[in-house]
Amino acid sequence: MYTQEEEPQCSMRGWYFTRREIEYHSPSRRDGISRKQETQLRELYCSYLKELGMRLELPQVTIACAMMLCHRFYMRQSHAKNDWKTIASVSIFLACKIQDTRRPLNDVLREASDMVHKLDASALQYIRRKEVFKELILVAEILLLSTIGFDLEMQLPYLLLVEALRTLNLFPVLAERAWNYV
């Protein structure tokens, strides 16, 4: 099988990284992006995904899946070469397909370009031109999928939480709180 030989070594030990690997040896670090900057970028795309997901009325599981896709992508590619707004928008689009919560590409484009515009009115003119943005998303989708090597298996904490809540039989209010934390 090709996967074992050709894929980079990280796929063999899954997607678990040590703190040192994340903080000192991420692809972005090689391009001169500091640890602090990358942490900020990570916060930025996560809050962007959360809002974009809410605008598209997506379940939390889909949003969490999109965040995982983004994290995985930036463990193999650099922030310097891949704009996070594009990658995050693609992650949501792809997560919708993976989690069976399909949204039309045009809806994703509309909400994403609206949000990007609010974040940064001057730059990123290209994102406001819909056709260009659409092509960009379609190309980035292939890039994202091939970067993470179609490895979309992920363990999200929700199932564990649901089971814990069921066993412990807690109050509904507490269950809701706990759900909001993960």
Partner: peptide, 8 residues
């Protein structure tokens, strides 16, 4: 009739 990217 619209392109929706890679087929799920």
């Amino acid at each position: 009739g619209k392109f929706e990217g890679i087929h799920p």
